[in-house]
Simulated scan of single mutants.
Amino acid sequence: MSAPRPVPAWVVVADVFAKVLLLLAVARVALDPGWGNLEGKAPVARAVTYPMLALLVPLLHALRALRARGRPPAAGERDRPYPWGGDLLVTMPAFSDLLGNRLDLYDRVVWFDDAIHLVNTAALSAGVLLLSGAAAAPLLQRLEVAVAAGLTVSLVWELWEYFAFVTRSAESATAYADTLGDLAPGWVGAVLAAGLVRAPDGTSGPAAHRWRGEKVEA
């Protein structure tokens, strides 16, 4: 088994930078929703759920390390590095949504909402591909994973928006059309992620080898 390629330093810096700015931003939004242009858009709910999303990968990685204690490591676990790339991709949607609202791009730029749904769904789908090891799979299997993950996340987001603030806002009359308009670019983003994300040679870890069809010892 070849050693995994080192993670570029800029990915680590970008991931840490995005998390720090996100935590500072949600703290400011919780105190002053007007700062983030989030009046009537569930600012408190965003201040709670966005850090949860940003800390999801570190938490899962820590839990996996705890489970691995006291037993022989499985194939590929010894040299399996922290998934900085996947972590950054999962953090990006929360960070970009707060930034877009802070700059008032959702109201000032007509196409920004569609673009952010495409980009954020692509980022989350790509993150799932990398974290699950499916980035090492053939294109058809990458499509299956990316579309399933991307549309599931998009649906969860639309349900979150609906119950968090849409039912109590002026957007309730156009919620159906807006939801369809958000899911469509999300699907495109998931397909793009499947086509663009491909694990390079040297990818290691049990998940990656399962997708390649190789036998992994328990």
Rank of each mutant, 00 (worst) to 15 (best):
M1R: 07
P4E: 14
P8Q: 03
V13P: 04
F17G: 00
L21K: 02
A27N: 04
L31V: 15
D32F: 06
P33E: 03
G40A: 04
A42Y: 01
P43H: 09
A45F: 10
P51R: 14
P51Q: 12
L55F: 10
L56H: 05
L60D: 02
L60K: 03
H61F: 14
L63P: 04
R69M: 09
A74K: 14
G76P: 03
P81V: 06
P83R: 13
L89M: 07
G100N: 08
L105H: 01
L105C: 03
V109G: 03
D113N: 05
I116Y: 05
I116N: 06
R142M: 13
V145R: 05
V147G: 02
A149F: 13
T152N: 08
V153F: 15
S154K: 12
E161F: 02
Y162M: 01
D178H: 01
T179Y: 00
L180Q: 00
D182F: 04
L183E: 10
A184V: 09
V188C: 11
G189R: 11
V191P: 02
V191A: 10
V197L: 10
V197F: 13
R198G: 02
D201E: 13
D201H: 11
S204P: 00
P206W: 12
P206A: 15
P206C: 12
H209F: 12
W211T: 01
V216Q: 06
V216T: 05
A218Y: 07
